[in-house]
């Protein structure tokens, strides 16, 4: 049976159909989850896609944190459910306290829309499970506030606990320690600024995003088979 992926949308989200299509083409089923819904029951994994949730008013993700669905997302994550936040979704997850740090304005106040090369730094996350460490992927970024920052203690913790999931090969936005993506302590919540769904077809110039999305679907499917074995 196809895995069910919930794609959470807020007013202003705009990458939901790209995200749905990308996972559907990898064999999963995908459904939209409205931010006003209080339940994410029945999903095998959740994606918080990119866009401008609640207009990015106040700060990206600052208002989305209060949407009813976020309580359900938080419970889902606490129970070990895989949650991936892409771009604005990453910002929402940091504001909601599901991931450490914050995304501030890019170095030099530059809006960036370009393809970056990111390096997989750990294979111990739902988004990179089974992907060889050091794998370089060409994936687009499209953001103004993608400059990852955190205090020195948090950075030391992320490094010590192997929780930096992706690093930019050439830092485009000033992110501390070249960080493009991080995960939580349980490794089932991952946030990243690059858009893997936009690198999911040769027509888009890269299919490298499917490496991450395939790893997500595989790591979702694996617990069931692991109990059989």
């Amino acid at each position: 049976m196809a895995l069910r992926i919930g794609v959470v949308i807020f007013p202003g989200t705009n990458c939901e159909h790209d995200a749905m299509l990308a996972v559907q083409r990898l064999g999963a089923s995908a459904e939209l989850v409205w931010h006003g819904d209080g339940s994410v029951a029945g999903f095998d994994a959740l994606i918080l896609p990119g866009g401008f949730a609640h207009g990015d008013y106040l700060r990206p993700g600052a208002i989305a944190r209060f949407s009813p669905v976020m309580e359900a997302v938080t419970r889902f994550a606490a129970e070990g459910g895989p949650v991936v936040g892409i771009c604005n979704g990453f910002q929402v997850l940091t504001e909601a306290g599901l991931l450490p740090g914050a995304l501030q304005k890019n170095r030099g106040l530059r809006f960036l829309c370009t393809t970056t090369t990111v390096r997989v730094e750990t294979d111990r996350s739902v988004l990179t499970s089974g992907v060889p460490i050091g794998t370089e992927l060409r994936i687009p970024i499209n953001h103004f506030e993608g400059n990852y920052t955190c205090d020195p203690d948090t950075l030391a913790m992320l490094r010590a606990e192997d929780r930096v999931v992706l690093r930019y090969v050439e830092n485009p936005n000033g992110s501390i320690d070249d960080i493009a993506g991080v995960c939580n302590a349980a490794r089932n919540v991952v946030g990243l600024m690059p858009h893997p769904e936009r690198a999911s077809d040769p027509l888009l110039g890269s299919v490298d995003g499917t490496v991450l999305l395939t790893a997500l679907l595989t790591s979702v499917a694996t617990p069931a088979t692991a109990t059989v074995a």
Binding site: L58, R59, E95, P100, A102, T149, C150, D151
Partner: peptide, 8 residues
């Protein structure tokens, strides 16, 4: 709780 993000 809302207006400032204490991280930054």
């Amino acid at each position: 709780r809302l207006l400032a993000n204490p991280v930054i």
